[in-house]
């Protein structure tokens, strides 16, 4: 068995040449692309992570604002309730006061009317007394007749009253 030294050296040269050519024209660019993809995947992962965190913080924010608006709505309802109770009381109070005022007015009117009527009555009683006295004086009657007359006129006055 002998070693063929010609092909031995040619093989060494060919192999080194092949390695350099493959590196330059085939695998060099391929390595670059693979490295680019690796970087791409890494950046995608970090972007996704950032997005996730952002989404989480947004969600928290929204939950907070929702809670806040719920509280506000509750407060508004409470206030409205209180306001309505107060207003109702006010209305009732006003109505009561009005009623009392009206009643008082009515009583005053009644009193006025009554005193007016008494006044009128007093004036009329006076006038009649004068008229009765005139009649008595006109007739000059005896005591018996006089008593009859007084009774008669009193009866007349009393009938008018």
């Amino acid at each position: 068995m002998h070693i063929d030294f010609g092909s031995f050296f040619i093989q060494i040269a060919a192999f080194i040449l092949l390695l350099l050519l493959l590196k330059k024209y085939a695998f060099g660019p391929l390595f670059e692309v693979m490295e680019k993809r690796r970087q791409h995947v890494l950046s995608e992962i970090s972007t996704a992570e950032e997005n996730r965190q952002e989404a989480a913080s947004l969600l928290k924010e929204q939950e907070e604002s929702l809670q806040k608006s719920r509280n506000e709505a509750y407060q508004i309802i409470e206030q409205a309730k209180q306001t309505s109770v107060r207003q109702a009381e006010e209305i009732v109070d006003n109505a009561k006061a009005e009623v009392a005022r009206l009643k008082e007015d009515a009583l005053k009117d009644i009193e006025n009317e009554r005193s007016k009527a008494a006044e009128t009555l007093r004036a009329q009683v006076g006038a009649m007394s004068i008229m009765i006295a005139a009649k008595i004086i006109e007739q000059n009657l005896n005591e018996k007749e006089q008593k009859k007359l007084v009774d008669k006129y009193l009866k007349e006055v009393g009938g008018k009253l």
Partner: peptide, 15 residues
């Protein structure tokens, strides 16, 4: 140096 031409040929072909 002995040079086996078939080897040379096939080295080139394979490469």
């Amino acid at each position: 140096l002995s040079v086996d031409l078939s080897n040379v040929l096939m080295i080139v072909v394979a490469s």
